[in-house]
Simulated assay, not measured.
Amino acid sequence: MAEASISQDKLMCPVCLDVLKDPVTIPCGHSYCKSCITGCWDQEDQMRVYICPQCRQTFSPRPALNKNTILAAMVEKLKKNKVQTAAVGAQDVQCDICTDRAVKSCLVCLNSYCPNHLQQHESLFKTKRHRLMEATGQLQEIICPQHDKMLEIYCRTDQRCVSYVSMMEEHKHHNIVSAAEERTDQQRHLDKTRRRFQQRIQEKEKECEELRDAMESHKRSAQTAVEDSERIFTELIRSIGRRGSELIQLIRDQKKAAVRRAEGRLVQLEQEVNDLRRREAELEQLSHTQDHIQFLQSFPSLSGALGSTDISSNAVGSLSSFADLVKSVHQLREKLENFYRKEMKKITVREPKTRADFLQYFCWLTLDLNTVNKHLCLSEGNTVITSVSCSSGQI
C-alpha cells in the first residue's frame, strides 16, 4: 500500500493536482496532463514565451508536446491497482476460527467467519438464525462495554449509541430513538456538510483560477513595463542609461516578490483544496456504510467545522498592474524633453527681432578714409557719414 501511495504522489499533475491524464513531458523534464499544459500555454500565446509552471524555465517558440509512454503505463497500472483494491475491500478481516479472510461477522457470537466456517455457523444455528453483517474488525466497538450487549439504539440526550439494557437503566428517562431514525437525521446533516465542502472546494478552485489569471496578467504587465521602459530609456541611453537599468531591475524585483507571495498563497490554496477533497471523500465513503452504529460513531469526528486558513491579505489584489509605472515613465520622458527644450532655448542663438535684441550687439565703428566711397563724406571723428547726393545718416 505504501508503494502504491508513493507511486500516486509521483504521478500527480502539478497543475490540476490529480493523477496524470494523457501525460506529456516538456523540454525541461517536467510532466503534465496534456490538457493542463496546453491550457496554460494557450494563455501565453500572445507573449510568444512559454513557461514551465514548476521550474519557470521559458521556451520560445512553443515546444512540441511528446507523450510520456512510461508515465502513461504507470498511470494505467495504478488505475488497475485501485480497481483491485476496491474489489477486495479497504479492510481485510481475518476469520476468528482460521487464517482465511472473513466474509461475514456475527453480531450475536461476536466473531467473523470465512465462507467455510460461516457455513458451519449457519448449520449450527439454523433453528435460531443469528444476525450477520459484512465482515468487520470493529465488532467490539458496537458492543456495550458495561452490559456486553450489542449497541442498537441511540441516546440523543448523551449523544451516543446504547444497548437496550442501558436504555432501561442509566438512560431510562433520556430521549431515545432507533439507530435507523438517528442515522436518517444525521444523514441529512452529512449531506449538508458534504455540500458545504463541495461549495468550499468550488470557491477555492475558483480562487486558484483567479489567482493564476492574475499572476499571468501580472507577468504580462511586468513584461510590457520592461519593454516600454527599455524602449523609452534607449532614447536617452547616453544620459540616463544607468537609471533606466535600475528601474527595470525594480520592476523585476517587484514582480518576483509579488509572484513569490502569490505562488506561496497558491500552494496553500491547493493544499486546502486537497484537504477538503480528502474530507469530502471520507464523508462520501461514510455515507455508503451499511452499519448504522459504525456510521453514528464515525460521523461526529468527520463532520467538524470546515475550518479555514484564509489570509486576510488579498493575494490577487497584490498582483497589481504596472500600467501606472509605465505612465510615470512616459511623463518623465515628457518632462525631460520639456526641460531639454527649455534649456536649449537658453544656449541657442536666436535671430534678433526687437530693438533690445539688436542692442545686445551694439558697438562703435570707425570708418577708413582710404576705402570710403567718393560719393560719401565723413564727419569729424569718422562717426557720421553723409552722402554727397543724399542727406546724412548716423551709423
Rank of each mutant, 00 (worst) to 15 (best):
A2F: 04
S7C: 11
Q8G: 09
L11S: 05
C13F: 03
P14Y: 02
V15A: 13
V15S: 03
P23D: 05
C28S: 05
S35W: 01
C36L: 01
G39T: 11
C40K: 08
M47A: 09
R48E: 10
S60V: 08
S60E: 15
A64G: 13
A64Y: 08
A64S: 14
L65A: 08
V75C: 01
K82T: 13
Q84E: 12
A90F: 01
Q94M: 06
D100I: 02
K104H: 11
S112C: 12
H117V: 09
Q119G: 05
E134K: 06
E141P: 02
I142P: 01
H147E: 11
D148H: 14
M150H: 12
C155G: 08
Q159E: 14
V162P: 02
V162Y: 00
M167S: 05
M168C: 09
M168L: 15
E169H: 11
H171S: 07
H173S: 03
H174C: 07
N175Q: 14
E181F: 10
E181Q: 06
E182H: 03
D185Y: 05
Q186A: 04
Q187K: 12
H189Q: 07
K192E: 10
T193Q: 03
R196T: 02
F197W: 01
E203W: 03
E207Q: 15
E207I: 12
L211R: 00
V226C: 10
E227L: 15
D228C: 14
S229A: 12
R231Y: 09
S239I: 06
L247H: 00
D253V: 00
A262R: 07
L266R: 06
Q268W: 06
Q271G: 15
R277H: 07
E280L: 07
E284Q: 14
S287R: 01
T289V: 13
F295G: 00
L296H: 03
G307L: 10
T309Y: 00
D310S: 14
S312G: 09
S313P: 04
S313L: 15
S321M: 08
L325V: 13
V326F: 00
Q331F: 00
Q331L: 14
N338A: 14
Y340W: 03
E343Q: 14
E343H: 04
R350T: 14
L359Y: 07
Y361G: 09
W364E: 15
T371Y: 08
H375W: 04
L378C: 14
V384P: 01
S389K: 13
C390I: 12
S391L: 10
